[in-house]
Design a binder for these strands. Sequence first.
DNA 1: TACAGTTCGTCAAACGATTAACGTCAATCG
DNA 2: CGATTGACGTTAATCGTTTGACGAACTGTA
Lengths: 340, 340
Amino acid sequence: MRVTLRDVAQLAGVSPATVSLVLNERSEGRVSEELAARVRNAAATLKYRPNLLARSLRTQETRTFGLISRDIATTPFAGAMLAGAQHIAWQRNSLLLFVNSDGDLDHERTEVASLIQRQVDGFMLGAMYHQKVEIPENLQDQRLVLLDCVDGAGRYDSVVPDEYQGAHDAVALLVSMGHRRIAHVTTTDQTIAATERLRAYRDVLQAAGLGNEMVVRCEGGEAQGGFAAMQQILRGPALPTAIFCYTDRMAMGVMDAAREAGLRIPADLSIMGFDNQPYLADAMRPALTTINLPHYEMGVWAASRLIPHSDSQDSEPAGPTQVKAHCAVVMRDSVAPPGT
Amino acid sequence: MRVTLRDVAQLAGVSPATVSLVLNERSEGRVSEELAARVRNAAATLKYRPNLLARSLRTQETRTFGLISRDIATTPFAGAMLAGAQHIAWQRNSLLLFVNSDGDLDHERTEVASLIQRQVDGFMLGAMYHQKVEIPENLQDQRLVLLDCVDGAGRYDSVVPDEYQGAHDAVALLVSMGHRRIAHVTTTDQTIAATERLRAYRDVLQAAGLGNEMVVRCEGGEAQGGFAAMQQILRGPALPTAIFCYTDRMAMGVMDAAREAGLRIPADLSIMGFDNQPYLADAMRPALTTINLPHYEMGVWAASRLIPHSDSQDSEPAGPTQVKAHCAVVMRDSVAPPGT
DNA sequence: TACAGTTCGTCAAACGATTAACGTCAATCG
DNA sequence: CGATTGACGTTAATCGTTTGACGAACTGTA
């Protein structure tokens, strides 16, 4: 069977209490160094490992956190977020209890309940794209950090991508390369990402004194939409020299349509994506210049915020903090100065 | 504070034991229905929820399973696997403790230890592509199911995609459509997937009496490799009418090269992928006909196998079972009979 | 001798459940 | 009438730790 504190105590010829003290390094001045060594030896020869269930029951701390993901299966980004969070949890020797709610709030409520029953020390609620979320009531008075989403009231810590900054950098880059006619292909969906990216696009154009904005909207943020949008642009009077796309997937459609029309990329047309979607942006031909969505880093931030360092004892900063994570340009081959 | 069994007992005016019996429906013939109702009432008004830590300590069962993923971040398939496993865990009201080892066996060992200390009821070890894996020693005598991988000795339950069957169906489909010159673009890597898919390709050609096999290998299973391979094929004497690609990513490169050469797809050339990679295969133009890798279903199978039904009491089937999951054809637009 | 101070460990009560084994009381039986 | 049975609950041990409170043995001091 499993070896317990008792077994170690027996082998070392002491009481369980002593073993506990020694092994937890609380024996300072209460147990002679000699005896402590004997205890440590006994523990080692028996390969004793404390039962964390029992410990948690006593200490009221499980070093376990609930990670609720809303529909993980449908996005290629989820893995990175999980990995980031997991990495930090691991560093702080904690573990992540992972559940996946399919966006069903009722379902989610029972999942939360189940996690609470297991006495988790806190929660992360992760969405799969930047959005505003409802928090189930039974989660509201728990320690909670939001990942890739925000709550309406701003009551919780949260981290989301800085859509505006990313889009701003993207368009500014095009401008700085000399592009004057820059189109924006986006979706009709009212997502935060779409809104913010559009806003940044407009601001940059404005600031650069480029009045002739060209915004083309299509349903869905997918390749088909991008294809349709590009066709529409091709029918227009004046072709842009660069297109800033809402997503890499739309960029893919745009690129296909442009190519079918005989345009060379980036010589005739520069294409800028957004998302840096794994296995897509780098696989396209030419490889897509785009803006990175820092999922791993967001996972890291959320977990760091949720799980206190065991060494640094200083309490957490006052009040909830909303962080926007920096979105960096990823230079590849689909963007160049016009006419090169 | 949290409400405990004791509190309920007090409110109902009975002993904790009685409450436990009633709430666990073991009170049959030991507690009057009247009293039982009172207890249930008390529990309800206090919103009592058992502390699962305490219960687990007593019952030696945590209803918690360790899910170890090897490098989740780098693949778009991981989410589906997790979701599948999670779904079953949920059904059996269990939870998944998720850890991610970066392929570092030492690291993994300590993670396993940490899970064991938390008294998990079993483990799933998930790889991110079909491969043979090393099992850390401290995992070897645990209840374990392998997901998307196998161990050398076949000592554990495992589920992997049926590469051979999938590839067989793929090539057979091309043949049945009337293709006679079918090439296979693959990698130089010695993965199980590459080997099996190639073997199936050869077998089908053989069986169909098509002697002229064309296998082109490139380094890496990525788009660039596919592009290079297609260029090589274009330089050859006789063009194939269809190409079976090792992965969707290679297919993407193949398609790009074919298009640059002025070939129409599928009219001049049919392209068959493998993997049904989310957000890629369906986004290509034309959308890629390919073979699905059933990650969700594999997750489901692994979890079902690991976590016994609480109702059906029959013990598990004897001996470890190695399952190959069926890989279905996904019909899209990149494949058609030759010359249409 | 008596008393206070150290030093070194142990006792025993938690933490919050589960569950054999055991009362108690009333009704029933021979 | 004494013994048996059944119905209804409770007692107390247990799961494996942690930890405040206590105690014994020894040293030094007046």
